[in-house]
Amino acid sequence: MSISLPPLRRLRILAALSLTAGAPPAGPPRTIILFVADWCAPCHAEIDRLPEIVAAARPWRVLVAQGDAAPDDRLLARVPADRRWTPPDGAARRAFLSATAGLPYAVALDGAGRICADTRRGLNGARTAALVTACSSAPSP
């Protein structure tokens, strides 16, 4: 399982975010963002494991975002309000999602709020810890 973000893919995401936001992209620093949708069965399992994921990510924060263009908030309603994340505009979410062919999808953001690792597999404790480790050892952009 490869969790580190390949350099070319990282550049593509950064370029897309820069073009849509007008500045280098930044999200919440030292955060893992899970993109989910109600129709995604693995996403439901991921939300069921949210306490395990949060524990494995510490001291990083874990947030959940709607990953569907036509959102259905039933799954997100199961997530505590302080764990939900909505980008300031739709452009950042579109740029994040342009890097994946489906859900579930998760990104890890480094101390500057930039994507440093991602995974297309549903998270559990071990995969979450691997994302944090990948970001902690990733060279600064």
Score class of each variant (00 low, 15 high):
residue 33 I to A: 00
residue 35 F to G: 10
residue 4 S to Q: 11
residue 70 A to Y: 10
residue 115 I to Q: 06
residue 15 A to F: 12
residue 105 Y to A: 14
residue 126 A to Q: 11
residue 101 A to Q: 07
residue 114 R to K: 06
residue 59 P to D: 08
residue 129 A to D: 02
residue 7 P to W: 06
residue 103 L to K: 10
residue 123 L to P: 05
residue 83 R to I: 07
residue 75 L to M: 03
residue 7 P to G: 02
residue 47 I to E: 06
residue 111 G to M: 04
residue 10 R to C: 00
residue 78 R to S: 07
residue 19 L to K: 14
residue 125 G to D: 08
residue 80 P to W: 06
residue 27 G to Y: 01
residue 141 P to M: 00
residue 94 R to H: 10
residue 63 L to C: 02
residue 47 I to W: 09
residue 84 R to S: 10
residue 105 Y to W: 15
residue 88 P to V: 03
residue 59 P to S: 10
residue 134 A to L: 04
residue 126 A to F: 07
residue 27 G to D: 01
residue 59 P to W: 08
residue 101 A to P: 04
residue 99 A to D: 15
residue 26 A to Y: 00
residue 78 R to Q: 13
residue 67 G to E: 03
residue 70 A to W: 06
residue 117 A to R: 03
residue 101 A to E: 07
residue 126 A to E: 11
residue 28 P to L: 09
residue 23 A to K: 14
residue 31 T to H: 03
residue 60 W to F: 06
residue 47 I to Y: 07
residue 39 W to F: 12
residue 81 A to D: 14
residue 18 S to K: 10
residue 36 V to E: 03
residue 15 A to W: 15
residue 138 A to R: 13
residue 47 I to N: 05
residue 46 E to P: 13
residue 9 R to T: 14
residue 74 R to Y: 02
residue 26 A to R: 13
residue 126 A to D: 12
residue 34 L to A: 12
residue 24 P to T: 05
